[in-house]
Amino acid sequence: MELAAVTFAQSLAQQVVSGIASGAVYASLALALVLIYRAMDVANFAQGEMAMFATFVAYTLITQFHLSFYAAFALTVVIAFAGGFAVERVMIRPFEGSSVLTLVIVTLGLFSIINGLAGLIWGYVFKTFAGPFSTNSIQFGGVYLGIQDLGVIAVTLVVLSLVFALFRFTKLGLAMRAAALYPESSRLLGVRTSRMLALGWGLSASVGAVSGMMIAPIVYLDPNMMQSVLLFAFAAAVLGGIESPLGAVVGGVLVGVLLALVGTYIPGGQNLRTPFALLVIVAVLLFRPAGLFGRIEAKRV
């Protein structure tokens, strides 16, 4: 009896840690979604594909240019930033001021373009993407923890802290927040809001790229690899409050842990993960539309 109980506790702890690790990936992509949503009230459906494309860039840097993982990682973050910036300038800017529906359709178009482009360049054969972390486990108080899981959590923590520090402590971050929340007032203060939007796209592309490079060693690399991740990230963002960066992170971790538990403890649960994520979205929208950290703002009409 006692043995069984301990085993259950250990398995639970292991599942929670690995859930937090996948949750960290969802959190990054959810944060990327939230950054753009706050700036333009549009969910960027191409966010996952942008992350996938960036991960392929990292793959090429590693396999063709023989960079180390970390060098490729850093370079990819920079390239993703430039890519996100350019995408905003070329694809979004012409539609500045258009209706939300128009912009949603533009991001859906972007989704197909990037997905097709990746297929054209790298093909649809699954590739292994070697991560920097060992796939072994370490034992900690009778619990086996995957080194890869811990590494993913650590890298994500560092990246998210940097993003939050940017927003909290720098003038640029402050201006980006102001421009996203109060574009008209910000322009009267001299903020070039259009440029801030492009920087926001760059930043969110970088954050998304991190999620791609963290998940790729776990799921294999292919042009469709981010699609379920994007769904989970949407669940995370909605759960946390689609306008709250902190909510995106907390939501990501919660969704990650929930899905890990569903996948482990419900018979046939592996196949229930996607419906479960949708259930989370629907339940939150029904019962708490602003999410955990969002607030419903009264609008004057």
Partner: peptide, 9 residues
């Protein structure tokens, strides 16, 4: 932060 934004430029 409002005041800092006033001096943004």
């Amino acid at each position: 932060e409002n005041l800092r934004m006033g001096a943004y430029i």
